[in-house]
Design a protein around this nucleic acid. Structure first.
Lengths: 198, 198
DNA sequence: GACAATTGTTACACAGTATAACAAAAAGGA
DNA sequence: TCCTTTTTGTTATACTGTGTAACAATTGTC
């Protein structure tokens, strides 16, 4: 299998092949069920030899993971920026920014929610987001609180992804500004209130 | 394919075969990855002929769906009972009942969360639970509310399933009574508060 | 231009799905 | 109990998709 060094040092043929395979997979997932896509179908679409796929990836899942990992890291950055904003008045703006980012990378998120095989990736995304929220919740917790911060963090992370999924399925309406407000009220304020009070 | 009348009128051989196949699938999923289970492996385990599987089901997914549908209906009943309880003081007890039911049907829920192919079933479960919660939220909504009840219902349904999944992964601790309290504070009270206030 | 790395072509072994035809066993009614 | 119907088992076969091997052709790099 060809080396996978820094993208700069990589052989241009390898870069090209992998890019073409990623693009072909994205196109195929958006037009049909992921489970029904075969490697032969992918390589035909990408116009590369069948065996070439195996020279770069062990499975379609691995290729899918490479495609999704790309964008999920960026989402996490947005959420981290948001979480560090202790200025509550700015939270709505930051919430809006999340949904504007999703709007921009629409295809990527459509794939994340569409294909069942992305479940593993969703789980790791949830874990990363949950860790961020967990840190935000920790200082608010009272000594004998009923709600463990681990549960609160997980709750917020999954709720956010669910809200994003709902939004995408509803053709991205209402607009990001409105979604930012919903996000703040339903997930941030509600959860923080529950942790602080219970 | 043999007829699928009321379970009473069904041929005893058909009832037996399908029961054995269901049991074998449950056993296999609990001990290995669902995606790696082949039909031949299933029929070997069930000690029936390979072709017999196709005389009853079109795919492993269909069999899995039959297994899960069985128990998810009952869960919904518990949640409906809970939602109709307007007496807030009793909500904790009802929340406890949900987690006691899950404790009882542990294997079923482990399978629901373990296998990616159960995603479709999870979605339909979420839809059903969301509809129940949506009705609970509707009367609380103010005229120009920021949060649509559809989002609130979806949020509560997914949060509940996430809480259940977290609980199962944590070996079902804390106990159901404690989980009932967390459920009430984090999901019911927090969401209702957000809908009524925002 | 020479060498190394990557890609393409062809062939093949293998596992899993799905079906057909016929034999064996079990259920149910007279 | 005998007879008929239905279900299950056995064997064979076609088909699709995965994964690898050997070697030729192409492309990148020094």
């Amino acid at each position: 299998m060809p080396k996978k060094n820094t993208p700069v040092k990589m052989d241009p043929r390898v870069r090209r092949t992998r890019r073409i395979l990623r693009e072909a997979l994205v196109a195929l997932i958006l037009e049909k069920d992921y489970a029904s896509i075969s490697i032969r179908e992918l390589t035909d679409r990408a116009e590369v030899a069948y065996i070439t796929f195996f020279r770069h990836y062990e499975s379609l899942d691995q290729l899918l993971m490479e495609v999704l990992d790309e964008g999920m890291g960026e989402l996490l950055v947005h959420i981290e920026v948001l979480a560090k904003q202790s200025d509550t008045s700015r939270l709505e703006t930051e919430g809006r920014l999340i949904f504007e980012y999703i709007q921009q990378k629409g295809d990527l998120f459509r794939i994340l929610f569409k294909s069942q095989s992305a479940a593993r990736i969703r789980k790791s995304v949830v874990r990363n987001i949950a860790a961020v929220f967990q840190n935000s919740c920790a200082p608010l917790q009272r000594p004998n609180s009923q709600i463990p911060v681990k549960i609160a963090g997980n709750h917020m992370a999954i709720s956010l992804l669910a809200l994003i999924e709902w939004w995408i399925e509803n053709r991205m309406s209402p607009p990001p500004s409105q979604m930012g407000k919903i996000y703040k009220a339903l997930i941030i304020d509600a959860t923080i209130g529950a942790v602080a009070l219970a």
